[in-house]
Design a protein around this nucleic acid. Structure first.
Lengths: 124, 124
DNA sequence: GTGCGACTTGAAGCGCGGTTCAAGTCAAGC
DNA sequence: GCTTGACTTGAACCGCGCTTCAAGTCGCAC
């Protein structure tokens, strides 16, 4: 069993964030030692997932809905597939942005914002 | 010349957002008709860029720094290249998240969060 | 000249994702 | 038993990216 400081250190999250996630239903401490939360080591992989999902642009509320999903929950499954398609669009957008930035870093247009290559890449 | 309502409609942004961007230095109205802002049609492509950059995760402050970049500004160029490399990481993360969601949509593990395939995809 | 309505301003408010703070509780070491 | 210090709580606060609101100003039609 881990205490909150250990989980914070291993997950890279602040203790306040862990308590915040618990209040929001993303996380549960597995028990208490007195007042103090104790955590099953398994929470670490859950936190990895949560952090990854957050960085992919999911809100706390979305993540908490997905984390309770069961195989029989067709509606949630469908939403996951929908989200995957939205991520496809995000990925395409980020790729264009990256290519524009790569171009911008060497382009000699003055001012940069007027470069036709730069603009074309961003406004398909 | 366009007025704020026209720019709002064509750009898909709220008039309040246009005023907000102007206050933050991302945008400038080209003049006034009395009190009212008038816009050069060229702002539309600038807004397209801004919206794209926002959706790629850039903050207002970052975008405004990039938009004033000149070819001679080596420091800003370098930052653009750095940002492009960060986007590479974001893109990789989003791809993993998308693949996990695609898997999750059909996986029969109970509960889903325990599926080893799902976890492996998210925690490389 | 007198409405009307779409604009103007600054200030306040909101949802998100937390952090910070004050006050209190508890386990462990002396 | 008493201190110490890491935890606990709820409430207040923060930065971001806007939106909303109240009060005021203007162009234009009548």
């Amino acid at each position: 069993m881990l205490d909150i400081a250990e989980v914070a250190e291993k997950s890279g999250l602040a203790p306040s964030a862990l308590r915040f996630y618990e209040k929001k239903g993303l996380l549960s401490s597995s028990g208490r030692n007195g007042l103090r939360r104790t955590y099953d080591p398994e929470v670490l992989s859950r936190l990895t997932m949560i952090t990854c999902a957050r960085r992919a642009g999911f809100t706390i509320a979305e993540i908490s809905r997905f984390l309770v999903a069961m195989p029989g929950d067709a509606a949630t499954r469908a939403k996951m597939a929908d989200k995957a398609r939205l991520l496809d669009e995000d990925i395409a957008r980020l790729r264009r942005m990256r290519d524009s930035l790569d171009h911008a870093a060497t382009c000699t247009h003055e001012p940069l914002v007027e470069c036709p290559d730069f603009k074309r890449a961003l406004a398909p």
